[in-house]
Design a binder for these strands. Structure first.
Lengths: 331, 331
DNA sequence: CTGTTAGCGCTTTCAT
DNA sequence: ATGAAAGCGCTAACAG
């Protein structure tokens, strides 16, 4: 492997000083056209690329880069977050380096990212202690999970309020008994299912019968469909269903159609997430939208605050964003 | 805005030399536990974060970062590419900085990325000359578009062969006349529609009537549905439809169902892209899959080759990947 | 117009 | 166990 070509190599080969090479490469003036052309030619010949670390080290302009950790690129919720973050970050002058938890361990991903960025943002799944060890002092903005220790900041979503409002509106729309389809994702990391926060909020505000009508399904369209059939079989009187997320809700709506159950006439179905896809299917899926714009804006507010202090501030910063209810056709 | 804390500040405050601070922060040994603890404490107090440019400049380990430019995060094709790239890149030790063409100009995005990465990969839409000016010498791997000038490399998809094979198979499955739904995206950048390469390949291999049955639609599920209705109205004898991409194909399938046209019994519908989503709907959508794994693997092969030469090689490298036909239910 | 000097913030020698 | 010196590759500031 050939040694990397440096500015000195070019200077020597072109018979000029390093400074002249810099001038040629940065359109700096104070250099004759002839010299400039010759230097650039030699550079091209040798395959010279300025070392970006050296350049940024000496440069006055402080670049800002955020490391975004997302759960999975095959989950539209995360890709929509990533897209929103990318757009908002670009507008505010942040560059974004991404990593996904899918490949390799979260701790490894974090360690790799650390060399390239000024702070982390994202959905983390490690326990707080292990996370703190992994990020090793890097300022970290956690999404959808409150954490209060120095160097950590968070953006929470007030899902409890969103679910309360949704249940109230379902009642107002004539629903007699509510049911829920929860995600079985806890089964992926432990041998026993444990209820998600969404389920706990649901049970708090469920109505129509003393026993909460809940079934658990796999996190996919097909899983939502199967869970809907199970729910209807076990609790036939349920006429309003909160579904863990929109993908599962789409599956549930399809299953209802296949069963000949009218949506929303006989059963109202409500997802969570606010996916764009939910507005493209028929009927469109009503949803408790986890407002991505607000979410990433809040995260970037924190990032900007940290950057403004040149990353010397360490006390925890927090934001809370409210979900927005999107009443489309399915509920 | 406070000045950024440097290693010297910490050294002074802790009453030690810079080297001792380095030792404390990098678990380097040759330092007493007491000193180490004290230094780290002072660092935390002051909010010290090592400058990543200085660190990487002096570090022996050469980091490798790729800048990935995608078209849009609201298009599942691009997010699937991005996800595949991220996973494959992580495995090969590349970090990935992303930008999307959605926000701001492509040239600006490229200029911002340039400060952080060793090469570009992606879907570019600028004319070759403008692109060359924008990347300003940065090695660039172009996806899905051949370009042969120094410093540029490419990964092509042999869609022509894929479409030929697809048409042959449609004929074998009893299709009598083929039709196509093309994308109107050229209308976004110019006042007049111009046929996409996919249409040209289709017309080369269409069969069943002298006049090619083609309609143009907007690039979305709804657009695919509308186009399908128009196609059936104008060419009722068409019984095999190639659709520009999978999202539009899903819309076409839904439209067919709404019209009471059996899929695949009366009309066979075939998309392009190979989206995961196409396997989750009913009926599942047959498709000419633009093999993402192969695509990103090829791009990273080129990237590794360039890195191995320390980015001194400039002659164009090329790869071609074959699409894979996925015969699911709709065709 | 061109070259020399200094220094960005850090880690790697090499002394002590 | 700690510190002094040197240098990574580049650009800013000053000479000439």
């Amino acid at each position: 492997m050939p040694r990397r070509v440096t500015i000195n190599d070019v200077a020597t080969a072109a018979g000029v000083s390093r400074q002249t090479v810099t001038r040629a490469h940065n359109d700096m003036g104070d250099i004759s056209e002839a010299t400039k052309r010759r230097v650039l030619e030699v550079s091209a010949q040798l395959g010279y690329r300025p070392n970006r670390f050296a350049r940024n080290l000496v440069g006055r302009q402080r670049l800002r880069a955020a490391g975004l950790l997302v759960g999975s690129f095959s989950n539209p919720y995360f890709t929509e977050i990533a897209g929103a973050f990318l757009a908002a970050a670009a507008e505010r002058g942040w560059q974004v380096m991404m990593a996904s938890r899918e490949s390799g361990s979260e701790a490894d991903a974090v360690r790799m990212l650390a060399k390239h960025v000024d702070l982390f943002v994202g959905h983390f799944s490690l326990p707080d202690d292990e996370l703190a060890a992994a990020v090793d002092g890097m300022p970290t903005i956690v999404i959808d999970h409150r954490i209060s220790r120095p160097g950590f900041h968070s953006v929470e979503i007030d899902l409890r309020t969103g679910i309360r409002q949704a249940m109230e509106e379902l009642r107002a729309r004539g629903v007699r008994r509510t049911g829920m389809i929860d995600s079985s994702y806890s089964l992926r990391s432990s041998p026993t299912y444990s209820p998600t926060p969404r389920r706990l909020f649901f049970e708090e505000f469920a109505f129509g019968a003393p026993e909460p009508a809940v079934v658990v399904g796999e996190e996919s369209m097909a899983g939502g469909g199967r869970a809907f059939r199970a729910l209807m079989a076990e609790y036939p009187d349920v006429d309003g269903v909160l579904v863990f997320n929109d993908m599962m809700a789409i599956g549930a709506v399809q299953a209802a159609q296949a069963l000949g159950i009218g949506v929303p006439d006989q059963v109202r179905i409500l997802g969570v997430d606010g996916l764009t896809l939910g507005a493209a299917v028929h009927p469109t899926v009503s949803t408790i939208s986890l407002d991505r714009e607000a979410l990433v804006a809040s995260a970037l507010d924190i990032a900007d605050t940290l950057a403004a202090s040149n990353f010397t501030r360490t006390e925890s910063l927090h934001r809370t964003v409210m979900p927005r209810l999107l009443w489309r056709e399915s509920a």
